[in-house]
Amino acid sequence: MIKLEHVSMKYPAGTVALNDININIEKGEFVFIVGSSGSGKTTLIKLLLKEINPTKGNIQVAGYDFSKLKPRQVPKMRRKIGVVFQNFRLLKDRTVYENVAFAQRVIETPTRYIRRQVPAMLTLVGLADRYKAYPKQLSGGEQQRVALARALVNKPEIILADEPTGNLDPKNSWEIMNMLEEINAKGTTVVVVTHNKEIVNAMKKRVITLKKGVIISDVQKGGYIDED
């Protein structure tokens, strides 16, 4: 599902963000990617979404080979990935319903499908009764659930979560992680980039640890490796 072969990323300023990375994530896996800031996590996410291109190596995501991907195919590839961000990135001037519908609008889903799928997705994340609310009227946990609904509504093959619990209290963090686990149980590949030691240790999933642009550990049912 996700394959990185000898991927290196060197920024024009000279910073080496990633150095000869090899990762292979199979369909249906649940993977944590951990590491302190500056380890190259953010660069990895940008590479997977093809916001930037690696200076060396090749990436394959959901059957798309990035070295052969034409610019106009990039949106098609991105539709296979649902993204969840630390700061939610909801549209502040739109309601919960519109925020989720937005994801379908932008990939030009017919309105009759949107009307059916958005309420179903809001029910799934437990926000069916709050569809008229605006983001600022919601708690952090609720906002992240809306973001999750938005990521899921287009039925992606991969969920890519960038610090999804970074702005949440433990209770809400667990709610989100439980939802991700449920989604994963239904067959969606889930990749979570996180700092959250407690969650990583408790969930016993595959853990890939990055340090200064290099993979220092990649173990099934692993735990959070404290650096130093």
């Binding site: 979404l49 916001e51 106009r72 949106p75 098609k76 590839m77 991105r78 539709r79 993204v83 990135r89 549209l91 937005f102 994801a103 932008v106 990939i107 030009e108 938005r150 287009n154």
Partner: peptide, 17 residues
């Protein structure tokens, strides 16, 4: 800017943006 960035990450085509 933020809305456009999200649109693109979700997979909006250029002409749609």
């Amino acid at each position: 800017k933020d809305e456009i960035a999200i649109m693109k990450l979700i997979g909006a085509t250029n002409y749609f943006v």
